[in-house]
Design a protein around this nucleic acid. Structure first.
Lengths: 343, 343
DNA sequence: CTGAAAGCGCTAACAC
DNA sequence: GTGTTAGCGCTTTCAG
């Protein structure tokens, strides 16, 4: 089955390839008659333009790159989902790559994508990325970039973020409103800005509600694992019976704390309320279900693509490109690991 | 910054583009001298070949397509992970698309990928795909296809699967070996072959251990949700106190059952043992942790790409292509929702 | 309204 | 060893 090309259609119809091309694209300077003829034949032959040739001419691939720190992760897989859905809508396909939280791999992958001439790249910075030359370099080359979730002020491009500080504030405030007065904060060791911001939110909430900030209530774990939550819970069960609320920077850590506290005979939420962060799937199946902050990955993914698309359009129309920083709203998801609001 | 091309390098060096091309590719008929000169300049100019032009000439894109029923899913995100890793190793990039379990979307997406001239496509059939014309059609066109996880005998191509029947057998056998004698089976309503096979395995195991098959021990739920597990557990708690083991076709369902049983005061595993299927992440954080069958998504993803790659090589070398069906080993993952083997 | 011609950047057969 | 040429398939002036 030989590939069917513009030239062949032209040959069959006894006209020129140029005319066929234009007819298919509804150029105004082609007679309706030939348009109809051409389209009919193209349809019946099931003609598909060769995308390489098109790309070569038009300098656009209709493919974008997506770099994810870690695919097997509830939040990030929602991001992928959102990006792919939004991209499909506009006729773009998505090449996904995983940095595995490595700076080196992030650089390599950006390179691979550039070499494939993707029309733009969406990136969430790896935890080990400390300088941004590789990203600024491609932006200068004219490749549109949008950063999502893990971003940096040192990169000048559009961004999609959540307000971690506000979210941390809301989480803590919710605990306070449900009656907690001695609220612990649990966080991982690495210091991406998100972690710091959630912590700041925690502090602000205490302050605004006239609760003292006590640094002994802040627990820093080695990783962000379920098991790390155990250790904190053991510590609380042994020495810190005054604690009546816990705000953890991740759902997984929160779940570890919750499970172990209950094993130690501490009741959740009666003795201690627990608030996670992200609204991962697992929060719905714990006992009790875990109250958390919804970090809407799907929506973030969609928005991230939309910003890239806007930029692509601006470039195509010769307009000056404007960068936007979009903040996606988070919200408290009350479940059963916290008490109900007293009204 | 003007794009740097073969022609420019040639111009600077005062030689022909063809020579440059060959030098860069280490053709034997180019003098070492010029090779060195060309390579040095290309390096210093940071020359990157234009992939569209290459693809247009060579008729290959070095991109493959991956169709996934549902991205936000622990097993499938592991598949993506494996495919992308294996592909990167061989210099291929991966465009991921999601069928959302829809036959129509599956067809559309295969089309999009074909139009982008991907070198091959990896597909897991959507639950609502009942005929395979769309897949057989592209195979006939010469596009290599590999099916993974959800496959069909009616498609003639390489496949990566697990032995669901054997896995169901092993799961049930494990329950028997740990002392269960009255084992319930819980499954969803849809009848993809995998569900049926796991059920067959269950029956076989009973038979081989001289336990009677009792169809009243088979529970069919409406969906595969956590909450559906509740209903089964309620039923068991109310009417079926003779049941001492449960084999569920998915981890999520199993978790729902386990949670509700415990709420009803039934002890797991003391009163009833529970065995899930897939080894999702959630199995590690339940109380007790859930025994299950490991369905190794990452490995399956890698192998799926490898089979495609083999086929691509065969085609390139003009060899006849051979199709392979690879069975990836599953294994029982004993955790705390089942008793320990009496030894 | 239509077509000839040029060219996107690269490669391979063939000639020198 | 190196260069010439032709062409992958498409698009877009520009001339008719």
């Amino acid at each position: 089955m030989p590939k069917i090309t513009l030239k062949k259609i032209a040959a069959i119809l006894g006209i020129s390839p140029a005319t066929v091309s234009k007819a298919l694209k509804d150029y105004p300077d082609i007679s309706n008659d030939t348009k109809i003829k051409v389209k009919a034949l193209a349809e019946s032959l099931n003609y598909k333009p060769n995308s390489f040739a098109q790309s070569l001419r038009n300098q656009e691939s209709k493919i974008i790159g997506l770099i994810i720190p870690k695919i097997v992760h509830h939040f990030f897989s929602n991001i992928i989902n959102g990006v792919i859905d939004a991209a499909s809508n506009k006729g773009y396909l998505v090449i996904t790559l995983q940095s595995h939280e490595s700076y080196e791999q992030e650089k390599d992958q950006i390179n691979s994508l550039i070499e494939k001439n993707v029309d733009g790249i969406l990136i969430s910075l790896s935890d080990h990325t400390v300088n941004y030359k590789h990203i600024n370099a491609i932006i200068e080359k004219g490749v549109p970039v949008v950063l999502y979730d893990r971003t940096s002020k040192l990169v000048n491009c559009s961004k999609v973020i959540i307000n971690d500080r506000k979210a941390g504030y809301e989480a803590t405030k919710y605990l306070i409103e449900t009656g907690c007065r001695k609220i612990a904060h649990i966080r991982g060791p690495l210091k991406p800005q998100t972690t710091i911001d959630r912590f700041m939110g925690y502090k602000n909430a205490l302050k605004e509600h006239d609760l003292p900030y006590d640094k002994n209530l802040v627990f820093e774990t080695e990783h962000l694992s379920f098991e790390d939550g155990f250790e904190v819970a053991e510590e609380i069960a042994k020495h810190r019976h005054d604690i009546d609320g816990v705000f953890s920077t991740t759902d997984l850590l929160a779940t570890g704390v919750m499970v172990k506290l209950q094993q130690k005979g501490i009741k959740v939420p009666d003795d201690i309320s627990i608030m996670g962060f992200s609204n991962w799937f697992l929060t719905k199946i714990t006992t009790p279900t875990l109250s958390t902050i919804d970090q809407p990955g799907y929506e973030m993914g969609r928005k991230t693509f939309d910003l890239l698309y806007d930029e692509l359009c601006q470039i195509k129309n010769g307009e000056s490109v404007s960068h936007e920083v979009v903040e996606i709203a988070t919200r408290v998801v009350p479940r059963n690991s916290t008490k109900f609001i007293e009204s």
